[in-house]
Write a protein that binds this DNA or RNA. Structure first.
Length: 474
DNA sequence: TGAAATGTTGGGGCG
DNA sequence: ACGCCCCAACATTTC
């Protein structure tokens, strides 16, 4: 007797536990698990090298937990899924929803096409606590401010789904007829990749461990500790969440089982910021490329490849900024506090378009996530929803003194300043020659002079942003 | 989920 | 003892 075949299409849900589509597909059927490198989306935001590295490693781990049955393709998802389904008399094709604009429309088309062939097609919520269309203001329009969105909108609606367990019985389809070439399930690591992968904890099992570690210790000082880049009081779950190696529901339900405190509340609200980013992207799909607040379209961003490059390389001459940028380059990650600092610096001190910064993050981050990245950059630029006002300009020297008081973080990523007195570590250009000498620092040679004057560039920025404000009221 | 400028207060040195 | 000034330390306002 030939049993039923179903397809689960893995995307940003590279896990077996709490995977609604996968669980559904496994019920009373033999499953064909599929991953597709979507060639049709290349024109939008092709995955950066860091993301790709993580993804491949994650796929290999996923394939292991699927008894080597994961099929990996490259091409047009619609053609691949349809052919696979038709050739194998598949009765159902299922996936968890994604929220980037082109995926939303592409998914709709694919779903219609599959259903037109009399094949069941269902989609599920696998990666958000609340669907964006379920949380609206009383007048039916989407929230644009985080606090009411979260407090009234999210917390006021139904509770998020309780996590599902891994299906008890997973039965794989045998003798699958394949018309499309599969990608080999191997991944040759290049040298730079093994370097950034050194501290990367990839895959479903690691994500679970990481969460446990965080909930056993870091979370108890999260509210304060999360601001200090060398404290370690953060979950570092962003990339795992991005690839769906763990779901927000799994995190949420574990946190809710703990005694509630300002720390757990704060962590939950950070998780809600992730939701808010997806929410904004869903309701305002153009924000990946356009300012949410259109008066920013007139802002005279400065095109300065030299400054931009110095920023990318962590050679701006401002240690706190450079440390952040070097952490990104070396580890594929960056502490949240630093993301704000380097973002503010790029947009407000260098007056470079936030999109240039977003693009670099997109290329370098393991956790490069279109929703979070876009929302974060628009937030710091002031062009987004509930954004930082234009006059909120971080001073990277003060930020360093406040959040890296012992200079540990700076010294970790800027070895050439390791011997410099703490007093001048945050602004080496102010150090007297004798101190620099003693520390073996030669300004302009072993460490650059600052590419901008923080105080004058701040004033210039305030003037420039003020013009926007005045124009807006006209 | 800033920072700088400006304002206010209060203690201590000093004539 | 008193007023005056200086200036931290803190609070408020402004960008």
């Amino acid at each position: 007797m030939h049993s039923k075949f179903t397809i689960h299409w893995f995307r940003s849900d590279l896990r077996l536990a709490d995977n609604p589509s996968f669980s559904y597909a496994c019920k009373n059927a033999d499953i064909i698990p599929v991953y597709i490198f979507d060639e049709t989306n290349k024109a939008h935001f092709p995955l950066g090298e860091a993301s790709l590295t993580w993804l491949w490693n994650s796929l290999i781990l996923l394939n292991n937990s699927l008894s080597d049955k994961l099929l990996i393709f490259k091409g047009n998802p619609m053609e691949i899924l349809l052919t696979l389904a038709m050739e194998n008399n598949v009765t159902g094709v299922f996936w968890n929803r994604c929220y980037t604009p082109w995926q939303v429309s592409q998914d709709t088309t694919i779903k219609q096409k599959i259903r037109s062939k009399k094949i069941e097609c269902k989609t599920f919520n696998g990666s958000l606590l609340w669907e964006p269309w379920e949380v609206l203001k009383a007048d039916g329009t989407p929230y644009k401010v985080f606090t009411p969105y979260y407090r009234r909108g999210c917390l006021g609606t139904k509770l998020p789904r309780t996590p599902l367990t891994t299906p008890k019985k997973i039965s794989f389809a045998e003798n699958i007829i394949l018309k499309q070439p599969q990608l080999p399930k191997t991944f040759n690591q290049l040298k730079w990749q093994s370097k950034i992968l050194r501290h990367a904890l990839i895959g479903e099992k690691n994500a679970e461990k990481k969460l446990k570690t965080f909930l056993d210790s870091g979370i108890f000082s999260y509210k304060k500790g999360r601001d200090f880049p060398s404290s370690g009081d953060v979950s570092k779950l962003a990339p795992n969440l991005h690839f769906g190696e763990i779901s927000p529901n799994q995190i949420c339900s574990k946190v809710k089982n703990m005694p509630s405190s300002e720390n757990t509340d704060n962590f939950m609200s950070e998780l809600a910021w992730r939701e808010f980013s997806y929410y904004l992207l869903y309701h305002f799909p153009k924000i990946t490329k356009q300012n949410l607040r259109s008066q920013f379209d007139r802002f005279p961003w400065i095109c300065n490849p030299k400054d931009l490059n110095a920023w990318k390389l962590g050679k701006t001459g401002i240690p706190m900024v450079d440390a952040g940028m070097r952490e990104l380059w070396e580890t594929g990650s960056m502490h949240n506090r630093l993301r704000m600092i380097v973002g503010s610096f790029l947009v407000k001190n260098l007056l470079i378009d936030w999109r240039s910064g977003a693009r670099w993050f997109w290329d370098c981050l393991f956790d490069a996530d279109l929703a979070s990245n876009t929302a974060g950059w628009q937030w710091i630029a002031g062009s987004g929803a509930d954004a930082a006002p234009y006059y909120r300009i971080f001073n990277p020297v003060l930020q360093g003194k406040r959040f890296d008081p012992e200079g540990k973080y700076i010294k970790k990523y800027i070895p050439e300043l390791r011997k410099l007195d703490l007093k001048y570590l945050f602004a080496p250009w102010e150090a007297p020659p004798s101190i620099l000498n003693k520390a073996g620092v030669i300004m302009g040679k072993t460490y650059p002079y600052p590419i901008v004057n923080l105080s004058t560039s701040r004033k210039t920025a305030l003037e420039a942003f003020k013009v926007l404000k005045n124009n807006a009221s006209n």
